[in-house]
Design a protein around this nucleic acid. Structure first.
Lengths: 241, 241
DNA sequence: CGACAAGTTGATGTTACTCAAAAGTGGTGG
DNA sequence: CCACCACTTTTGAGTAACATCAACTTGTCG
């Protein structure tokens, strides 16, 4: 298990899906094969457009994307992020239509998600877990916006994002990549960029976070979690690698 | 079609699911049969507890329930509502665990959801549409909390709730039932009950809504929708009854 | 009628927004 | 290497929206 994770550390998608459910060798091969058909999307480009028919399901291999809702007067709200190993385009309808626009925040590389094969149910389970997690993140986002203040929102979001990136093997020595501008973070957390800036300064002054050069380090994650009553998303036994 | 809706107006569940996808006579019968096995839940009782294993899928026949998240300091956030015709306990995981607590706000009557039968795909489609709608309501709730002010939040929520109740045939002569206290609405919209109260007064003074005796009437729904850039949730051709 | 929950009101406090400008950052081309 | 540009971050001052606290009123139901 440990050996497999290390040998595949280059692929966040395999790392994440393999953490969500045990994958067979065939399934890992299928993923690696699919990754050869990768596609590149430039920053600020739309990956999926609201209302457009959904093509196939794809996996994010690298980069950050987000679901976004625009208002007529220029306001916008980022609904959630899509990080490496996440699936795009999972759809429960018969007539699949994208419910939200998905937008590349950085350069994003995707590949088609290998189809589920009867007999090999690791991938199917991983896909199902992925969908369940995505829903859980939506619930968390609602609670965050509805009842936390700016300081708590930022801490809560950082803890959640750290957990998500760790699941994909993207934490390095206690730090994780953070390619967002404060403006984007503001549109995520329902704040203004000015207020995000001031709150981040408070967090730095309190020696709670370090944010430099596109990387973030949480100085005392457990302390932060206790501070704001952060509870990690439920994971089944399969996810405790 | 019209005839069928009228003759079944007594069941919000059949009305709603039948609006989401065309159902065969057998499927409608299966629903009516399932409704005989109904269960009653008292107000303020939990229907599903966070972390507990999910039993089977059930349908709400009448009453209002909500998903709720509690914080240690007493704050709470209502994540979304479950209205007549909605499904509880749909779960994509292998080890099904409830992600959120579901709480009866009024007396709620549920029944087991009839299983999908191969060959008859109306129900399956309706269930899928229902899940897709539920997700769409989560996205809307995020945008509402993140970027709308108190006045807009209330209007937006009222318009959405009206649409949902209409789908289940629960609008009567331009009015729809509203069994919530202002306190509950506050916990839904991320406000205090005092502020909800003042904002509702403004809405009444503006002659935009009437709210008496557990019923709400939107005086000019189209005008309200234009006012706050309300866009109804996407529905496929099947839902335009 | 009495009790309890829900709705209403007023005074005051705080969080976060707005507007505007300055300072820092990184990339590009001359 | 420097000048320039666009973008991001930072800072300050004033303001608006919403929260808090506490009392009072209304409605409901046994």
């Amino acid at each position: 298990m440990r050996h497999r994770q290390e040998s595949l550390a280059h692929s966040a998608a395999v790392a994440r899906l393999g953490s969500l459910a045990p994958l067979t060798g065939q399934e890992i091969q299928a993923l690696q094969l699919a990754e050869l058909g990768s596609q590149r999307v430039s920053p600020s480009r739309e990956i999926v457009v609201e209302g457009a028919p959904v093509r196939d399901v794809s996996i994010i291999l690298s980069g950050w994307a987000c679901r976004v809702r625009h208002f007529m007067d220029g306001r916008r709200q980022i609904l959630g992020f899509l990080l490496p190993g996440d699936l795009i385009g999972v759809c429960r309808q018969n007539e699949p239509v994208a419910v939200t626009t998905v937008f590349a925040l950085t350069e994003v590389v995707t590949c088609p998600a290998p189809p589920v094969v009867p007999g090999e149910n690791g991938l199917a389970e991983a896909y199902a877990m992925s969908a369940a997690l995505e829903e859980a993140y939506l619930f968390r986002q609602i609670a965050r916006l509805g009842r936390l203040n700016a300081y708590e929102r930022i801490v809560d979001w950082l803890l959640e994002t750290r957990d998500r990136l760790r699941l994909a093997g993207l934490e390095y020595d206690g730090s994780f990549p953070m390619p967002l501008t404060q403006e984007v973070l503001a549109d995520t957390l329902g704040l203004t960029s000015v207020h995000v800036n001031r709150t981040l300064q408070t967090l730095r002054r309190d020696r709670r976070i370090e944010w430099r050069g596109g990387m973030v380090r949480l100085v005392d994650p457990e302390g932060l979690a206790a501070l704001i009553d952060y509870r990690p998303v439920l994971v089944t036994s399969a996810a405790r690698s």
